[in-house]
Design a protein around this nucleic acid. Structure first.
Lengths: 155, 155
DNA sequence: TGATAATGTATTGTGCACAAGATAATTGAG
DNA sequence: CTCAATTATCTTGTGCACAATACATTATCA
């Protein structure tokens, strides 16, 4: 075990704790999402599209990117895969032909019902107190907001 | 903004908070690590190899995988890239030829001195109270341990 | 109006992650 | 000793992430 005061000790790094916990969490999702034929990022995209459909909003690729913090190099091929499977429709806007809007199709919207059980099942699967997880979520959001509020290269 | 009680609301998901915070954090590391010519996973591998060198231990590929929670499909090409750059040496064990050991070379060990400033600079860059970050790290480690202690498919 | 800048998306290239399967070496039961 | 099972690593294929660049469209201004 590394020294607990080693500034470069792997286990002392917040970044590694984040990195490992994130992958462990998505690994927990994987078998549940496989039932829906989705990867984890695809699931996140659908969460946004389901919310938009419920609110009657139209989402563009750039809107997905802002919400999920992903760029077009990630989203474009991901959306094409979802479109090939008929879960999503991409359409170039007629008012502004630079814009591509994305909506969930019938099958894409139907998936939401199957997805409904996922958060609950995952919560059980973790075996951690839900209140602790919610507190952790809030703290992560707070840190994320702080990270994003700063200039990218603040020293 | 999605309903705060929508069980499928993006912003209500712990998983998304983890996912976004992790990427924001590694994005903070990126410019600092670029000075050393390293990616973030390469940096993690070197953290382990530096620790091992200090302790006089020899690390095998499987040991790196256990420590970092990565499999050989990720590590093998990563280690080859580090080896091409002369930062690492891979050597098949003579006692057991299935085993490949990995050690940091002179230049690889020298990088540690340059890396020493990174945790401190990153801490400043986040603009978050260090005690809060340490508490967050400990909570993440605790959740990670809980996730890893359970059967992979515990319902 | 006609050049120029800004905007929104797509493409290309590199490097993780991870599943599945292959390969080679070692171990162990008989 | 022999061969099946195990172990450790490597390979292949798919799908993110992200930087850099390209491209078409729209907006701006001299």
């Amino acid at each position: 075990m590394g020294n607990s005061d080693d500034i470069l000790g792997l286990d002392n790094q917040l970044c590694f704790a984040l990195y490992a916990a994130n992958r462990a969490m998505t690994a927990r999702y994987r078998p549940l999402l496989m039932e829906l034929g989705l990867t984890y990022p695809q699931y996140l995209v659908l969460l946004v599209l389901w919310e938009a459909a419920a609110a009657g909003d139209v989402v563009r690729v750039s809107g997905l990117g802002e919400r999920l913090r992903l760029d077009s190099g990630t989203l474009t091929p991901l959306l094409k895969r979802l479109e090939e499977r008929g879960l999503v429709r991409r359409q170039r806007s007629v008012e502004d032909e630079r814009v591509v809007t994305v909506v969930a199709t019938g099958p894409g919207l139907a998936l939401r019902e199957q997805a409904r059980s996922i958060p609950g099942r995952l919560l059980c699967s973790t075996g951690v107190d839900p209140d602790r997880l919610m507190a952790l979520r809030d703290e992560l959001r707070s840190v994320l907001a702080q990270l994003e509020s700063q200039a990218p290269s603040a020293r």
